[in-house]
């Protein structure tokens, strides 16, 4: 079976039709999606900018990460679940949309970036932040995350208007 058959099957399911054709399900889920997005990206960006040394330099990087990460995770959970429903509403549209494919790839990459952060950066952050400028690893993680998340938002915006 090809991926397209799975997407077609999802597209024809009664749940998908209900999400797609009702007046209220889609706008409500999308509202939740945007609120989740604001909460997660609204906190992630300050972590990234701190890692890059561009904002809140008077606070320790580990302190910024520790206090904002729980909110980034909560927001991400809300965004991911609501995003799944938005996808289920129009699987075939998503299948054919280049912007959706790019978004999915960037989402996976940003997940890998978070894993890298927790494996290679976060354990050393308390040690590294004693220096005036953080080493290249945390700065790279911050930059990659920032670029990916803005890319994800813009790709999502394109997908919505197709």
């Amino acid at each position: 079976m090809h991926l397209i058959n799975l997407f077609q099957w999802l597209n024809d399911s009664s749940f998908s039709v209900w999400l797609r054709e009702g007046d209220w399900p889609f706008p409500i889920v999308e509202t939740v999606h945007i609120l989740g997005l604001s909460l997660s990206v609204g906190t992630i960006m300050w972590i990234d900018l701190r890692l890059l040394g561009l904002v809140t330099k008077r606070y320790r990087a580990s302190e910024v990460v520790g206090q904002l990460e729980p909110w980034a995770i909560r927001g991400f959970g809300v965004m991911f679940i609501s995003g799944l429903f938005l996808f289920l509403a129009e699987p075939m549209k998503c299948y054919s949309a280049l912007s959706f494919r790019l978004k999915a790839i960037m989402l996976v990459l940003s997940g890998l970036n978070v894993l890298y952060f927790h494996a290679k950066v976060n354990p050393h952050l308390v040690e590294w932040e004693k220096a005036a400028v953080l080493p290249w690893r945390p700065r790279m993680v911050g930059l990659v995350s920032l670029v990916l998340w803005f890319g994800i938002i813009i790709a999502g915006r394109w997908t919505a208007y197709l």
Binding site: S38, L39, V41, G42, T43, M45, W46, L68, W71, F150, I153, I154, R157
Partner: peptide, 18 residues
């Protein structure tokens, strides 16, 4: 122009959230 508009919105909401 709309991309810039949305990027600025993300930063603005980010400041409000924190």
């Amino acid at each position: 122009v709309e991309t810039v508009h949305i990027m600025a919105l993300a930063v603005l909401l980010g400041t409000r959230v924190v």
